[in-house]
Amino acid sequence: MRQILDSLLLVLALALVWQGLYWLAGDLALASPAQTFARAAELLATPSFWRHASETFLALGYALLIAVTAGMGIGLALGMHRLSGEVAEPVLVSLYSLPKITLYPVILLLFGLGISAKIALGVIHGIIPIIIFSMGAVRAIAPVYFKTARVLRLSRGQLVRTVIVPAAIPELVSGLRVGFSLTLLGVLIGEMFASQRGLGYLVMKSIGTLDVPTMMAVIVMLALVAVLISSLLLYLDHRLHRRAL
């Protein structure tokens, strides 16, 4: 309880810093917390804002679906096959630290302007950490579980379904958490450059028209939603990790 109170105090402190920065930097650069939230409330009442928001979350949903299913599938397979995993790991790590935004022209050439380019950018951002986490999850499974499975003479399918996946779930959720953040990032980058719709586009447009309150309101709302979803996943993550010994 005290911890939540402390966290809230911290939020308050951050808001004060924000207000201070506003007094320092002035109207042209920053909107105050009050202006930002007032603008956010206005935006939430306009239908066009909801069209942009639903476009963003639709793209995010598709991107997550692809990144999670493909990423976990590939990751589990690489984790189970030792040699393939060893071959792939350094390549994956290199891809992870590659600034994927530089691939954006290729994506645009491939998919054209529109929702598929955003989804593709989301997928290439999110899928790599999900693969890496899933692979690590399988490798971290206690060898005695595999031995037990052999003594009970499980088939390969049974092994995956009833031992590997349940044993890996805590780590899979950790991977999902990181994957979610990066997928959102990828989708927003796509919207900032390769789209006429979505919240990323809204941010870019308000910069173009020097509409600082709108820009900040959208950013803050995005950050809030992202933190909220991430917190939920974090909660799940902690619970699952506590269950395992």
Partner: peptide, 8 residues
Amino acid sequence: YAVPFFAF
């Protein structure tokens, strides 16, 4: 890392 920093 869930906060999209590029937006800032």
